[in-house]
């Protein structure tokens, strides 16, 4: 029974990691940027969700607004910060991204205050039981939300013109251009989708914790980097698998290894161990 719950809780955490990290891997796959500020967009999504829900009373409306606004914000980050740095060494964009992330966290603190915000009325507090297994509705929302979002992303990548254009651009930008693919547009759409996913993850976490704080992005900022590396940098499927696996490993680690390692250390011991055996990550890129 305990093990069923541990695995389940691991998967819930893992799906949260997955929704955040998959956007990061989209960006990395296309542009080779370690986009730390992604976690800042995640936080922004969470703030917009809470503030609009409290103002209008409608959670769905708030989530919609959050994904749209943050999607556009992501495109702006690309246009204003990353685009001019594309032909620079990769660490330039990395440090710029870290700087932007610091700015974002500090702006949230100054504008919204350091105490964090909560929903005026707690969302999804019911308890769902399926046979012997029970979970909070917010947990279920996290799982279902992740499945819906990631299936949607999968379909988009496999079945649509954008998906084809994206994959072509990732594989060989010059070739893609010669086939008439607008690679610039692909980049913008890519940032929109990645950032909208971050916002959705932020909304889900806001509901789950009933707490949105300026620093809520700091753990995702580095842990999602670990996940996309585990998943084989730029490999969307690999990222999903790595996120879920890490969620479960952390769940077990917190209970059985907590006496000598903390949670973050567990994740990174796993990461380092994997990279020493498979330097290209669990799943090689593409």
């Amino acid at each position: 029974m305990l093990h069923v719950e541990l695995v389940l809780q691991g998967l819930i955490n893992g799906s949260m990691y997955a929704v955040i990290a998959v956007g990061l891997t989209l960006v990395y796959g296309l542009l080779r940027i370690l986009h730390v500020a992604h976690a800042g967009l995640f936080t922004l999504g969470a703030y917009i969700t809470v503030l609009i829900t409290n103002a209008t009373g409608s959670l769905p409306l708030a989530v919609l607004a959050a994904t749209l606004v943050v999607g556009v914000a992501g495109m702006l980050v690309y246009r204003l910060l990353y685009e001019p740095l594309l032909d620079r060494p990769p660490y330039v964009a990395l440090i710029a991204s870290i700087g932007l992330f610091i700015c974002m966290e500090e702006s949230y603190r100054i504008v919204f205050g350091p105490y964090g915000n909560s929903f005026d009325t707690m969302q999804l507090t019911q308890r769902i039981t399926i046979g012997p297994i029970g979970m909070a509705a917010a947990d279920a929302a996290m799982l279902v939300g992740a499945v819906v979002l990631l299936t949607g992303l999968g379909l988009l990548m496999k079945r649509t013109r954008f998906g084809i254009a994206w994959r072509a651009t990732v594989t060989d930008p010059a070739m893609a251009r010669s086939f008439g693919i607008d690679t610039i547009k692909v980049r913008y759409v890519n940032f929109f989708i990645a950032s909208a996913l971050a916002a959705a993850a932020g909304a889900l976490v806001a509901v789950l914790n009933n707490l949105v704080e300026p620093t809520m992005g700091s753990v995702p900022s580095y842990k999602s980097l670990a996940i996309i590396v585990l998943g084989g940098l730029g490999n969307v499927g690999g990222t999903l698998a790595a996120a879920l696996l890490l969620g479960v490993i952390e769940a077990y680690g917190t209970i059985y290894a907590g006496a000598f390692l903390d949670r973050d250390a567990i994740a990174f011991v796993f990461l380092i161990a994997v990279l020493m055996v498979r330097p290209q990550g669990l799943f090689a890129a593409r």
């Binding site: 990395y28 080779r32 370690l34 990769p90 660490y91 990395l94 580095y222 980097l225 670990a226 590396v229 940098l233 990174f268 011991v269 990461l271 380092i272 990279l275 330097p279 290209q280 990550g281």
Partner: peptide
């Protein structure tokens, strides 16, 4: 990038 993340780890 793999090394960067390893050192972070």
């Amino acid at each position: 990038d793999f090394l960067a993340i390893t050192t972070m780890g």
